[in-house]
Design a binder for these strands. Structure first.
Length: 284
RNA sequence: GGUGCGAUGGCCGAGCGGUUAGGCACAGGUCUGCAAAACCUGGUACAGCGGUUCGAUUCCGCUUCGCACCU
C-alpha cells in the first residue's frame, strides 16, 4: 500500500504589488474588461475595492462596484452579512439589497444580475469592479458558466413539498455572452490573522445587535429553517434564539464555522488558479 | 505520611493480550441553479521505566503527575 503523504498546509501565495498604471492602460485598451477583487471573509475586500475605485478615478477611470456576495443581496440582513454600505462612500455599488430576506437567490440569478449591471456600467463608460467572496458566483461570470443546457428549474405542482425556487425563470435563458477578460486581485491575510479578525469582528457584530436583527427577521415571518439555511451568523443565531445553543456555544461554534468557511473560500480560489485564473495577491 | 482511583493522538471519549473505535478541532480537496450550502479525503495515540508473554495500549511492579479519602 502506498503511504500517503500528509498534505502540508498550503503556503501563502507571494504577495504582489499592483501596477496601477499598467492596469489603467489595460483597461483603456480593452485588454482588461473587468477587475475582480476576491478574498476570504474578513480579508478587507470591500475596503480594497473602494480604494482601488478611487485610485482608478484619479487616473480618469471612474469605477463602480458589483458585489459578488450571495447573502448581501438580501435587504434587512445587514449586520450578519457585514454589509457596511457606508464603506462604499460615493462609489456606486450593485447587486446588494436586491431581494427580500427569506427568498431564494442563486448563481443563475446572479449571472443575470451581473450581466445587467456590467453592461450598464460599461455603457456609461465606467470601469466595473466585481468584489466579493462567493467563489461560485465569481467563477460563473468570469469563467462563463453556461446554464442554457441545464434544465430550467420547474416549480413543483401544488401540494408538492419540493423546494420552490420562485426566482427561476421557466424560459431558456438568453444566449450567454462571452465572459469578460478579467484581472483578478486577491486580498491576502495569513490564517492566524484572518481567524483573529473573524473573532474580533464576530464579537463586534454581537455587540452591534446582530441577535436583534435576526430576531426581527423571525418576527417578520422569515421561517427559522430559511435563516438556518442561510448559514453562519443566521444559522447559529437562529439556533441560539430557539434555545438550542447557549451564548457560549453560539460564539464558539459560529467562530469555528466562519473559520471553516474562510478556508473553503481559499480552497475555491486555489481551484480557480489551478484551472488557469491568474490571481494577483496583495497584502492589505 | 497512608490508602484508593485514574493517566489514551490538539480536545472529548470507547476499548481490547495480536485490525488504525468514534466525535470535535485541524489540514487538503470537490463544486456549472439553495455555495455563508452540500460533500469527499487525511493523522497507528495509548504518561515513563522495567517485568510476564511468541506478542502488551490492554496483565504485574516501580516512578512521575492528577483526583479522592484517611490518620
Amino acid at each position: 500500500m502506498p503511504k500517503f503523504r500528509k498534505p502540508l498546509p498550503a503556503a501563502l501565495p507571494d504577495p504582489e504589488t499592483i501596477d496601477l498604471q499598467q492596469l489603467a492602460a489595460d483597461l483603456r485598451s480593452g485588454a482588461v474588461e473587468l477587475v475582480c477583487v476576491l478574498g476570504p471573509t474578513a480579508s478587507g475586500k470591500t475596503k480594497y475595492a473602494v480604494s482601488l475605485a478611487h485610485e482608478l478615478a484619479a487616473l480618469g477611470l471612474p469605477a463602480e462596484i458589483i458585489s459578488a456576495d450571495s447573502r448581501q443581496v438580501y435587504r434587512g440582513m445587514d449586520i450578519g452579512t457585514g454589509k457596511d454600505l457606508a464603506e462604499y462612500g460615493d462609489i456606486p455599488y450593485h447587486i446588494i439589497d436586491v431581494r427580500e430576506a427569506g427568498t431564494q437567490y442563486n448563481v443563475y440569478d446572479f449571472v443575470q444580475d451581473f450581466r445587467v449591471a456590467f453592461d450598464d456600467i460599461r455603457s456609461r463608460g465606467k470601469v466595473a469592479i466585481l468584489c466579493g467572496g462567493t467563489g461560485l458566483y465569481i467563477n460563473a461570470v468570469t469563467a462563463g458558466y453556461d446554464f442554457r443546457s441545464r434544465k430550467p428549474l420547474s416549480v413543483p405542482s401544488a401540494g408538492g413539498d419540493a423546494p420552490v425556487i420562485p426566482s427561476a425563470p421557466a424560459v431558456i435563458p438568453s444566449e450567454a455572452k462571452e465572459s469578460p477578460r478579467t484581472y483578478f486581485i486577491g486580498t491576502l491575510v495569513s490564517r492566524e490573522i484572518r481567524n483573529s479578525r473573524i473573532d474580533a469582528r464576530l464579537k463586534a457584530r454581537l455587540a452591534e445587535g446582530m441577535i436583534d436583527e435576526i430576531r426581527g427577521l423571525l418576527e417578520q415571518g422569515v421561517p427559522a429553517a430559511t435563516l438556518i439555511g442561510y448559514g453562519l451568523e443566521y444559522k447559529f443565531v437562529t439556533l441560539y434564539l430557539q434555545g438550542e445553543l447557549t451564548e457560549e456555544e453560539l460564539f464558539e461554534k459560529l467562530s469555528t464555522a466562519i473559520h471553516q468557511f474562510a478556508k473553503r473560500q481559499m480552497t475555491w480560489f486555489r481551484g480557480m488558479e489551478r484551472s488557469g485564473a491568474v490571481i494577483h495577491w496583495v497584502e492589505v
